[in-house]
Each structure stands twice: as structure tokens, then as C-alpha cells.
Amino acid sequence: MEAFLHQVLAGLATGGIYASLALALVMIYQATHLVNFAQGEMAMFSTYIAWSLIDAGLPYWAAFALTVVIAFVLGVVIERVVIRPVENAPVLAVVVVFIALLVILNSVTGWIYTYTIKTFPSPFPEQPLFGIKYMSSHEMGAIGVTLAVLLLLYAFFRFTPLGLAMRAAAQNPESSRLVGIRVGWMLALGWGLAAAVGSVAGMMVAPIVYLDPNMMGGILLYAFAAALVGGVDNPGGAVFGGFLVGVLENVLGAFVIGNELKLAVALVLIIGVLVVRPSGFFGKVYVTRV
């Protein structure tokens, strides 16, 4: 029982990370109906930047904040420079560009930082927090950080005029232009935010999986699964899906199929959801009257 509880809690911690990345995917999906295959590599690249900053002597949280800002700018620049020209291109062209981005970020990171695995610090103490023994302090801290990010995002989209404009631009670009919203920039902002959220996920997962250019491959897959389980156009569902996938992965990996088949959980979930219920289990059904 204790072991089970431990696995569930550890699952929640990684689940939070999947949730963040899934949310990043959903944000871009909602605005463009595209799934960003490079989302994981963007997060990985940002995490390396954080590593450099910490390595240069910056205190952890300063490096954290600076990384989030840099990731945001990177996201905006990528949208403006690389994605914009294929905005209205066929799906295949866009997918190819995403894959190109994945490959470029991966190889450039390998070029700059080598493929040697690096450790990445956790900002949380070694001793368990509050004397809770089922969870490491990093796991608890990661859950806390994830929840804080999710709350901030929710507040931003729900209560600020800019957040409202971004939601409007995502669902009805033409009407948005007619009220004066600069739709192109809203898309770029969306990419920036997604990249920023992804960078947090990267920094939270790096102490667990260590830092290497391929660290995000599997995690991206779990994030895909999370986004699909939750409904790829539903941010709340994606977050729930993230936690669910995290717990499933840990519990199944520990007790049922063994750790070496963990990725198969993601594969089965992705194909299963896509075939059985493409709108996800929380996918919105829009009510419209004409």
C-alpha cells in the first residue's frame, strides 16, 4: 500500500510536468489547429539556457525567471520567423517545418553543449518537506510550481483584456480583426506563452531525468497523450489528462508492465484515444444556435 501511494504521488509530480507541456500544446492547438512537435525540444533548449545561467553563477530563482523570459522571446521569434510563412500551407508542410525545428533545436543543443548527460539542480531542499515521507521535496515543489503556473495562466486568460483578446483571436480571427485585435501578434504571443510554460516544465523535470538533448522525447509523448485524453482543445482537460497520465505511467510501470514498457502506455493511450474518441474525454461540445 505504501509503495502504491508513493507511486501515485510520484506520478502526480511528473504528471504536473506533463500537464504543463500538454497545456503548451493545447494553447498552440487552439489558436492554429496544429500540434507543435517541437514543443519538447523548445523546452529542452530553454532548460539548457537555465543551466548556463546557473553555471554562470546566477541564483536559482533568478535563472529560473530569466529563462522563462528568454523562452517567451524565443517562442515569439520562432512564430514570427519560421511558422508565419507556412501559416496557410498544407498540413504536411507545417508538420515538416515542426519536425525541422525539432531537429535543429536538438542538434544545435548537442553542438553547443555536447551530448554528455548533465545534472540539473533542484531549488528544493534534500530533506522531505513537512516531514512527509512519501514524496521527495522536489516532487512536492514541482507540483507546487506547476499549480502556480496553471493558476497564473488561468487568471491571465480569464481576467485580463489581453488574455481575452488572445482567446478571441484563437476562435474567430476575422471578428477579432474587426474589433481591432492584431491577430498575428496574438498568435506569436501564444507561442511565447507556450514556450514559457514549456521551459518551466523542462526545468522541473530536468533534476529527475537529467539534462541531455534527447530528454524530452518521451515526455513530449506523454504530453501528447495527456492533451488527447483531455481533449486537445480543452486546457482544463489537458491539465487533468497530464496528472492522469503521470499517475497511470508510474503505477502501471511499477506494478503491471514494468518500467521498460512505460512509453508503450503513451503509445496505447494516444492511438486508443484517437481511434475511440478523437475529441478526448473532456473535449468540448460547442452549443451553437444559428
Partner: peptide
């Protein structure tokens, strides 16, 4: 411009629609 087909932001609330009108 009050467009043909009304251009409603169907997933937003009525008030959010109105606030968007004053976006600029």
C-alpha cells in the same frame, strides 16, 4: 463593422463579446 453572419465569438460570454468591442 457589424458583419454579415454577425461574427459572434460563440464560446465567449455575452459580456466578453461586448468588452472585445472596446478592445482598442
Amino acid at each position: 463593422h457589424v458583419p454579415d453572419g454577425r461574427g459572434t465569438f460563440v464560446n465567449l460570454t455575452t459580456e466578453e463579446n461586448l468588452r472585445l468591442g472596446a478592445y482598442t
